[in-house]
């Protein structure tokens, strides 16, 4: 069929033309078309929201559309591997975070080298919050620790699959206070939002989640936040002490959101992107949007970021040894 040959020839010609155009891309002309920003979570979670705020600002900064594309599933492996296998041309980026980088370093079934990617920059991070039920007998941090120590088998904590920083915040809490994590009852949930509901309803004793997940329920009095990780208070959770204030500076689990690219992204493009990301972190509307969901701007780029993530991974490894398995 001659027509098929003709169509095929036209397709090949088009492919050739576009590949030439791609090769000519330099930092000066980048970006010249829309960028795909892959979020390895379903829409609506904390990382997704932060990534959307970031994408919006990045789009203004770079002058091209930045499309948020959700590729959820399989402990973020699907999203990450789709970015890894894309061309390193700066048009496919990953909304990276601990769950899609350092934690993956602990999972035995990740089919690629987790560190083999171009870490461009992180732009936001936020603390976790530890919560107990408003009607529970525990009034504060010390009460919970005491109860959990007395009877770890009867102590129920929320658990979201072991591949999130919230779970590591829980593990860190248990480790810090000398509670045997392997004896505590871990109750499965799909998201930190569900954990918060269960704690508020009194279904489970204790939960951890990104700070924003407790904003609403803490206002009803059904949920009692007992501590924030790290040393910075959160405006919407006024009166909740930080772990540092309570004398536990070791409880510093934070979650972060940034930009990564496939391995082999040219250096000049990486620099240009990192500068753009750093710029948006100072944008007031972005800061406001981040603040509203319990995050604050925190810029770290290039090798500093990689070193930071490596360090994070080693800490996660130590924590997960407590429960005998990775994740």
């Amino acid at each position: 069929m001659p027509a098929f040959t003709r169509v095929a020839a036209a397709v090949c010609a088009a492919a050739l033309l576009t590949s030439c155009a791609a090769a000519a891309e330099t930092a000066a002309s980048y970006p010249s078309r829309s960028i795909d920003y892959v979020v390895p979570f379903a829409a609506g979670g904390s990382t997704d929201i932060a990534a959307r705020a970031g994408a919006e600002a990045l789009s203004d900064e770079l002058g091209v559309p930045v499309n948020v594309i959700n590729k959820p599933g399989a402990d973020q492996i699907i999203g990450v591997s789709s970015v890894r296998s894309a061309e390193p041309d700066g048009y496919t980026l990953l909304a990276d975070g601990a769950g899609s980088s350092s934690i993956q370093g602990l999972l035995p079934y990740v089919p690629y080298d987790w560190a083999d990617r171009t870490f461009v920059a992180k732009f936001a991070e936020g603390p976790h919050v530890y919560v107990v039920g408003g009607d529970s007998p525990y009034r504060d941090y010390a009460d919970v620790v005491e109860a959990a120590k007395r009877n770890p088998e009867g102590f129920t904590v929320g658990w979201i699959g072991g591949s999130s920083t919230s779970d590591y915040a829980t593990l860190q809490f248990l480790a810090e206070n000398g509670i045997d994590a392997a004896r505590v009852q871990r109750v499965p949930f799909r998201s930190s939002g569900e954990v918060m509901r269960a704690v508020a309803a009194g279904d489970i004793d204790f939960g951890a989640g990104g700070a924003s997940s407790a904003f609403s329920l803490s206002k009803t009095g059904k949920l009692r936040p007992i501590a924030l990780t790290g040393d910075k208070p959160v405006g919407k959770l006024a009166g909740v002490p930080t772990a540092a204030e309570l004398g536990h500076p070791g409880l510093d689990m934070r979650y972060w959101v940034g930009v990564s690219a496939p391995p082999g992204l040219p250096r000049d493009l990486t620099t240009k992107l990192a500068d753009a990301v750093a710029a948006i972190a100072e944008d007031e509307t972005v800061v406001d949007a981040l603040d509203a969901v319990g995050l604050s701007p925190a810029v770290l780029t290039g090798e500093d970021l990689r070193a930071d993530i490596d360090h994070e991974k080693r800490r996660f490894a130590t924590l997960s040894e407590q429960i005998g398995v990775a994740g």
């Binding site: 397709v11 088009a14 576009t18 590949s19 078309r33 829309s34 499309n67 594309i69 048009y91």
Partner: peptide
């Protein structure tokens, strides 16, 4: 709706 643009991207 964002679909893969493939080789026709611009």
């Amino acid at each position: 709706v964002v679909l893969p643009a493939g080789i026709l991207r611009f």
